[in-house]
């Protein structure tokens, strides 16, 4: 279906390609769809943002890439091609070799992602020892070096701190250090600045941007905040209820949003007054009926055709939207 897009890409530039991903969660004997027919690409050196609200499946999609999904999640369909290799079919050993080495991960609420009983520097050194055949001593030196690159003040001292002694911003620098210690080609950052202060958020995003520019690291940024996205992303993928609504260049998403949901998100991100009239805030999972556009219950432009599943509509060079409003344009 979306293979057209992949073919268009120069394959040497392509780092990651997610194709027709479908993921379900098992709850007792029920199956809940979390991600449905999600496809997108990440080129080398690019920052791609997956944007959506809670229940949109953005985090599930991100965790599926290095296969870190919880045990009750099942990948029903799809291909995750990383440097030409399908990660869904990779063995445990192959995945472990890729995690931390090829794909690094950064999370929301960084302090909880650090082992409370281990010195933070050792947690950075741990990943180096794991993937690079060097001695512990060298790994410690390297870890201190990385902390310094993460702009941790006094890395020599902070190395020996325990997680509870760090502020949120400092903990996030350590977690980013852990993620990039082995210079991965892809960094997945799941809401990396969500609970941080504004000034700290700007610093952390600046750091991520520097990693992208200086090391050419590709970043998959997961966020609910279009503001954060505007400052760092090259491409934006908008998700709602487990499906992609729209994808495009950051400029086209912000300057020329097509999908009604993208527009609603943009207005909401300004907290402006000219909000499109909205219905109740039902949790989106209640509405993910098996057919039809999942946004039609909230959409101000809803029409009869929306009961059918929207198809992918390619708009221009490389943006696409899943909305019947644009069926004539293609």
């Amino acid at each position: 279906m979306t293979l057209t897009m992949i073919e268009r890409k120069n394959s040497s530039k392509l780092l990651l390609s997610v194709q027709n991903l479908k993921i379900q969660y098992r709850k007792k004997n029920e199956y809940i769809e979390a991600v449905e027919d999600v496809s997108f690409n990440i080129d080398r050196g690019k920052v791609v943002a997956l944007v959506g609200e809670s229940g949109s499946g953005k985090t599930t999609t991100a965790l599926a890439i290095p296969n870190l999904l919880p045990a009750n999640a099942i990948i029903k369909e799809g291909v995750i091609l990383y440097k030409g290799k399908n990660l869904i079919q990779a063995t445990h050993e192959e995945l472990r070799a890729i995690r931390g080495k090829e794909i690094g991960m950064v999370f929301q609420d960084p302090t909880s992602f650090l082992d409370p009983l281990m010195r933070v520097g050792d947690q950075v050194a741990e990943v180096i020892v794991k993937h690079e055949s060097i001695k512990k001593k060298e790994a410690i030196l390297k870890a201190k070096n990385i902390l310094e690159k993460m702009r941790v003040t006094e890395p020599e001292r902070i190395y020996y701190y325990y997680p509870h002694q760090l502020s949120g911003g400092m903990a996030q620098r350590v977690v980013i250090g852990m993620a990039i210690a082995c210079q991965p080609s892809l960094l997945i950052a799941d809401e990396p600045t969500s609970n941080l202060d504004l000034t700290v958020q700007a610093q952390i995003l600046n750091l991520l941007k520097a990693l992208n520019h200086e090391l050419g690291m590709s970043i998959l940024l997961i966020s609910h905040d279009l503001g954060v996205v505007s400052g760092i992303a090259d491409r934006v993928v908008i998700m709602y209820a487990g499906r992609i609504m729209e994808e495009g260049d950051v400029h086209s998403i912000f300057k020329n949003p097509r999908h009604p949901y993208t527009r609603a998100l943009l207005v909401a991100s300004e907290l402006g007054e000219d909000m499109v009239k909205q219905q109740n805030d039902f949790p989106s999972d209640l509405l993910s009926s098996s057919s039809g556009c999942c946004y039609r219950h909230k959409c101000p432009y809803v029409m009869e055709r929306c009961k059918e599943n929207p198809i992918e509509i390619l708009l221009d060079q490389d943006s696409r939207v899943y909305c019947w409003l644009y069926s004539n344009e293609s």
Binding site: L198, T199, Q201, Q203, G227, S230, A233, L266
Partner: peptide, 25 residues
């Protein structure tokens, strides 16, 4: 600084990320 750190929501104005006004906690 607080206002400068605020996301611009404009991909053409990324100065708030590129030049964070203050450092540290």
């Amino acid at each position: 600084s607080l206002l400068q750190s605020f996301p611009s929501r404009d991909p053409d104005d990324t100065s708030w990320v590129d030049n964070p006004p203050i450092f540290g906690d």
